[in-house]
Write a protein that binds this DNA or RNA. Structure first.
Length: 593
RNA sequence: GCGCCUAUAGCUCAAUUGGAUAGAGCACUUGACUUCGGAUCAAGGGGUUGUGGGUUCAAAUCCUGCUAGGCGCGCCA
């Protein structure tokens, strides 16, 4: 990358200045090369002189002058000192040579070698299989899939995984719901279980099972039938979700069964191991894990009184399942989370608690399968579990930085200015499939990607339906289609061109365009490190803008043959870059629109 | 009550993670089509970055008080 090359040259300049006695000897601190806000200030700015003021014992402008004096940029660029900034401007000749480099790299343009083949995992989606994929899942999978694409481009061997929550209470409730719908489909008047899933998706699944399997489950013992139907239901729902994901351009390497952590004995082995390390406390018939990863000693704890629960607002709940205050008025371990309890699940080998799965799962990812990084994409409702999983990773000896949990904010769904409340259980969810039908998968992905994951944003279905051509994705795709169109026309009409012409660009719109093109590998690096994929949307729009300006200013057809060739080469470099960004974002690259 | 997140132009959001004069899109006003694709381009107005302090050569960005909003906090998942 150009930025890395320049950084080396700046370091060499400082060393050279020190060797010449122009700067005192000191250890060079970490510094960065930035892009100045104003493009007339150059392509890169170095502010290291201000950092060095104290250790070099000179005023910053003088330091900058000394560094600039020893900076050997050759034909690549020129440097100028302004207010202690060293501004580096890439030369037109150098920028021109990059076009040839980009064309030579072809489809690989934009790829970098940050990961050096290291195994990385992005686990995303992972919604409970209690219904079809809802619009709430769209942000999760779009962010996750884009990050997976990015890590791949950054040189990692990427594994894409969906964690299937196929154990636990909700799944049992689902089984009952599907069974009721199955029975109803066969003509039996079977009531839905309490808190059952009322959506038409579950009804459809129940009907499908009846059509496929007939009445035979009605003749089995009730519990056995519900169990079997529940398993069939999960499978059918997952199949449906997979079809939806494919429509969004998303494929997985693996669907990881939560249940397998328990049936394989991994969860039990983990509990045993943690217990031997003194990280598990047996208390009141349950097993607790120390949340901060430090050992728990018996007797250490705090009084959880009725007053404290009332203060926390927990006792005000109308929910019948709300905690019984009398039951809480006793000592609990400090910052501990339950892992296993006969009260939750009578047979804990099947699945103790939610957290009892998190610990073996993080071990499975980071240690057994060796992913680094192991990226989680979680909704904000799981925010409280983040420190617990980090603590678990620490307790298990997994180095910092291996486990990276991203928490995104839920979108607010609007329809005609009114907020839409939805829930799978109540049966008023909005399916991704329906939104794709309305606005298309590319536009949906672009919307989901265009805001930083910390941002809560409103997503108005009506507005997007009415004004879907204002979505910037069409602007970017239009730019791509236009590059294709120009190349097609040049081919079909046989525009005269001089294929021996040198690639030297002079027009300011050409040079600005090359500058934007060259940022692609920096974007891949930025997003691979920060895991913030919204940067692509800004970049894609700016790149397309630079191309549109070039298109207005620099006519190709009917120009002298050397210019025709030169500009067509540049158009192809744009095409490669736009196509790469669109593919990284998981969007299609239309040749016509 | 405690924890996490958020507050930037009329609206929706950026700001390459601490750099120079805070930028785009939408909306509004004005201009450009015998054109390689007008789904375009050019120009204009619009800001005390919620608010008070602090750290730093440098703060929208880091720390902190306050205000407003969102989410979370069960032997639920």
């Amino acid at each position: 990358m150009v930025r890395d090359q320049l950084k080396v040259l700046v370091i060499q300049a400082i060393q050279s200045a020190q060797a010449a006695g122009d700067l005192s000897p000191f250890e060079i601190p970490a510094f960065s090369l930035d892009h100045p806000r104003q493009t007339d200030m150059g392509d890169y700015a170095v502010s290291v002189a201000m950092q060095l003021a104290r250790i070099a014992r000179l005023p910053p402008p003088q330091i900058a002058q000394q560094i600039a004096k020893h900076l050997q940029l050759g034909e690549m660029a020129s440097a100028e000192v302004v207010n202690a900034f060293i501004n580096i401007r890439l030369s037109p000749a150098f920028l021109s040579t990059k076009v040839g480099d980009i064309l030579a790299r072809g489809e690989n343009w934009g790829n970098i070698d940050l990961g050096r083949g290291q195994k990385a995992q992005v686990e995303h989606g992972s919604a409970n299989p209690t219904g079809f994929a809802t619009i709430g899942t769209a942000r999760n999978v779009t962010v996750g899939d884009t990050l997976a694409n990015t890590l791949e481009a950054a040189g990692y061997a990427v594994h894409r995984e969906w964690y299937v929550n196929d154990a636990g209470t909700q799944i049992r409730v689902l089984g009952g719901s599907v069974f009721a719908r199955y029975a109803q489909a066969s003509g039996v008047d079977e009531p839905m279980p309490e808190k059952g899933y009322l959506g038409d998706d579950v009804a459809l699944i129940g009907k499908q099972i009846f059509e496929r399997e007939g009445e035979r489950y009605l003749h089995l013992p009730r519990e056995e039938a519900v169990r079997a139907i529940g398993r069939l239901g999960i499978d059918l729902i997952m199949e449906h979700i997979k079809v939806t994901l494919v429509r969004m351009g998303i494929r997985y390497d693996n669907f990881f069964s939560e249940k397998s952590l328990h049936t394989s004995g991994q969860a039990a082995a983990m509990l045993e191991g943690l217990s031997q390390k003194g990280l598990i406390l047996e208390y009141e018939g349950a097993s607790w894990f120390s949340e901060d990863g430090s050992p728990i000693r018996s007797g250490q704890g705090r009084k959880q009184t009725a007053e404290q629960y009332a203060a926390a607002g927990l006792a005000q709940s109308d929910d019948e399942d709300a905690p019984d205050i009398d039951d809480k008025g006793k000592t609990l371990p400090v910052q501990a989370v339950v892992m296993r309890s006969a009260k939750v699940v009578p047979n804990p080998d099947e699945r103790a608690t939610y957290f009892a799965s998190d610990i073996p799962y993080v071990w499975n990812k980071a240690v057994i399968r060796g992913f680094n990084p192991a990226v989680y994409v979680w909704g904000e409702d799981h925010q409280a579990d983040v420190p617990r999983v980090y603590a678990a990773a620490k307790a298990l000896g997994i180095p910092d930085g291996v486990v990276r949990i991203l928490v995104y904010r839920f979108i607010t769904l609007m329809r005609g200015g009114e907020e839409v409340r939805m829930g799978k259980r109540k049966g008023n969810a909005i399916w991704i499939d329906d939104v794709i039908d309305e606005m298309g998968a590319d536009a949906l992905r672009y919307v989901m990607l265009s805001r930083a994951i910390d941002t809560k944003f409103a997503f108005d279905l009506n507005v997007l339906k009415e004004h879907n051509d204002t979505n910037p994705v069409f602007y970017v795709q239009y730019g791509h289609a236009r590059t294709c169109s120009i190349e097609r026309k040049a081919e079909e009409e046989g525009w005269p061109m001089d294929r021996t012409a040198s690639l030297v660009y002079e027009h300011s719109s050409e040079l600005m365009l090359i500058r934007k093109i060259m940022l692609l590998p920096e974007m891949v690096e930025l997003i691979a490190q920060s895991l913030q994929p919204h940067h692509y949307t800004t970049y894609a729009r700016e790149l397309t803008q630079a191309f549109s300006k070039f298109y207005e200013d620099c006519r190709i057809k009917d120009s002298p043959p050397d210019i025709v060739y030169r500009r067509l080469q540049l158009v192809h470099a744009v095409r490669l870059t736009l196509a790469k960004v669109l593919r990284l974002m998981g969007m299609s690259t239309p040749q016509k629109m």
